[in-house]
Computed example of a mutant assay.
Amino acid sequence: MDEGRDKTLHQRILTDIEGNIVSGRWPPGTRIPFEVDLAERYGCSRMTVNKVLSQLAKAGLIERRRKSGSFVTQPQAQSAVLEIHDIQAEVQSLNLPYAFSLIGARKRLAKAEDLRRLDLDKGASLFEVTCLHQAGGHPFCLEERLINLATVPDAATADFTILPPGPWLVSQVPWSTAEHRIQAIGASADAAAALHLPRGTPCLVVERRTWSQEGPVTHVRFTYPGDRHALVARFTPASST
């Protein structure tokens, strides 16, 4: 056996298949050619192809189903529950190109629900921003954010078509405290339209409030399609007394 040739073919097949998946040419659900067909195409043994597919499955790029073949999986991002995560970094961790678009931005007075969310007094002025984050050209996450203008007055004139509000806020205001609230819901009409989902599709919603030394900064609501996102947390046992 020519081990050098076998390794070269292994890398070539791996690169070709991975490239088709990451580029979006093979979207989630696409059936990967059968082992026998790939072996014939590349002029190699089925064992070499099997090792490639096993490696791709271990990386989470494909799912191998007994008697059915191998299929491209739906990428699933993971973010830490206790961290202020960056959506662009989440998308790039999936080896997918990131993009975002501004849906709407406006200055307005806080409503009754906003006062509760941000611990504000009646008459408070807010800046409301809604944007869509994309992964590989497909909707990834809907962001609905309220910014307290008493704490961050520059938000009213910021250009959120260039930089999403999350990274902009991090660069402008050092936060001191954050609170996360996580729940599973059915997609609302607006969220479903933005994420290209049927209304009521299971979604994961992460709500976050942050404060600085000057007061409440922002309340943000991230809505993810439920099958494309996971939350993780690492912790240690509490010391016993």
Rank of each mutant, 00 (worst) to 15 (best):
T151D: 09
R145N: 12
E143L: 05
T157F: 11
F140K: 01
V72P: 12
K58H: 06
I147H: 00
S93E: 10
R66C: 03
T130W: 00
F71C: 11
E113G: 00
Q92S: 14
E90H: 07
W168G: 05
P165G: 03
G60N: 00
H133R: 14
A150W: 04
L94S: 10
T130D: 14
T73V: 14
I62R: 02
R64L: 08
D159Q: 01
L109E: 14
L82S: 12
G137P: 03
Q88D: 11
V72T: 06
Q74N: 09
E128S: 15
S125E: 15
A89I: 08
V129E: 05
V91G: 08
S101Q: 13
S125A: 14
S101N: 03
L61M: 10
I87C: 07
P164T: 14
L120C: 07
P75G: 06
A57G: 12
R66N: 02
E83S: 13
F100N: 01
L115H: 05
K58L: 10
A110Q: 04
P97T: 03
P167T: 05
L163V: 15
L109R: 13
H138Y: 00
G60T: 08
A80Q: 08
F71Y: 15
K111W: 00
A110H: 04
A158L: 09
P97Q: 08
A112N: 12
K58F: 12
T151L: 05
P165K: 07
V129T: 11
D159G: 01
G60E: 10
A156T: 00
A59C: 05
A156E: 12
